[in-house]
Amino acid sequence: MRAEPAVPADALALIRAPFEALGAETVDAPILQPLGLLLELAGEAMRARLFVVQSEGGEETCLRPDFTVPVVRQHLESGRSSGRYFYEGKAFRASPEPGRPDEFRQIGLERFDEQGASPVVADAEIALLAWRSALAGGRGDLSLWLGDIALFAAFIDALGLAEPLAARLKRVAARPRLLAAELARAEAPAPAAAEGARLAGLLSGLSEADAATVLEEMWALAGIDPVGGRSPADIAQRLIRRAEAAQAPALTPAQAEAIRAFLAIEDRPAAAFAAIKAIGGQRPGALDGALAAWDQRLTLLEQGEVPADRIRFAAALGHAFDYYDGLSFEIRSAALDPERAVAVGGRYDGLPARLGGAAGARAVGCMVRPWRAWAGGEA
Rank of each mutant, 00 (worst) to 15 (best):
L76K: 04
E103D: 14
W131T: 03
R139N: 11
S78Y: 10
D66T: 00
F112Q: 08
V69F: 00
G89K: 03
L128T: 02
F104D: 02
K90P: 15
V121H: 11
V72P: 06
Y87P: 09
S95C: 08
P96W: 02
R139W: 03
F104K: 06
S81H: 07
F86H: 12
A91H: 09
F86P: 01
S95A: 11
A134C: 10
V71A: 01
P65W: 05
V69G: 04
G89L: 00
D113Q: 09
E125T: 00
K90G: 14
R84K: 15
R111G: 01
D123C: 05
A127N: 09
E77Y: 14
V71P: 04
S78A: 15
P65E: 02
A94H: 03
G137D: 07
P101Q: 01
R105G: 09
W131I: 05
A136C: 07
E125L: 06
S118A: 13
I107S: 06
G116D: 08
R139S: 11
D66I: 01
I107Q: 04
V71K: 09
K90V: 14
S81C: 10
F112H: 11
D123A: 03
F67N: 03
R132C: 06
G116E: 04
P96I: 08
V71I: 15
G83Y: 11
V69E: 06
G83M: 11
I126Q: 10
G79N: 12
P98L: 15
G140P: 11
D123G: 01
E77V: 12
F92Q: 05
V71H: 05
D123R: 05
I107W: 06
G83Q: 13
E97P: 11
F67I: 03
A94G: 05
L109V: 02
Q74E: 14
R100K: 14
S95M: 11
E125V: 03
G83K: 09
A136I: 06
F67W: 02
V121Q: 13
R139I: 12
W131R: 01
S118T: 07
P119K: 02
Y85K: 01
A127F: 07
D113E: 10
A136V: 07
F92D: 08
R105F: 13
P101N: 09
D123L: 02
P101D: 10
D66W: 00
S82H: 08
A122K: 02
G79S: 14
A91N: 06
S82R: 06
G89Q: 07
T68K: 04
G116A: 03
P65G: 01
G137V: 12
P96G: 07
Y85C: 04
Q115A: 10
V120I: 10
A94R: 07
G138I: 04
L129R: 00
S118Q: 13
F67Q: 08
G140M: 03
V71M: 05
Q106P: 09
V72Y: 08
T68L: 00
E114N: 06
F112T: 02
S118R: 10
R93N: 09
E125Q: 09
E77K: 13
S95V: 14
P101F: 08
R111W: 12
A134W: 12
A127V: 15
S133V: 00
S78P: 12
K90W: 15
R100E: 12
R139Y: 04
R105L: 15
D66C: 00
A134T: 14
R105T: 13
E114P: 01
Y85P: 00
R84S: 09
A124K: 04
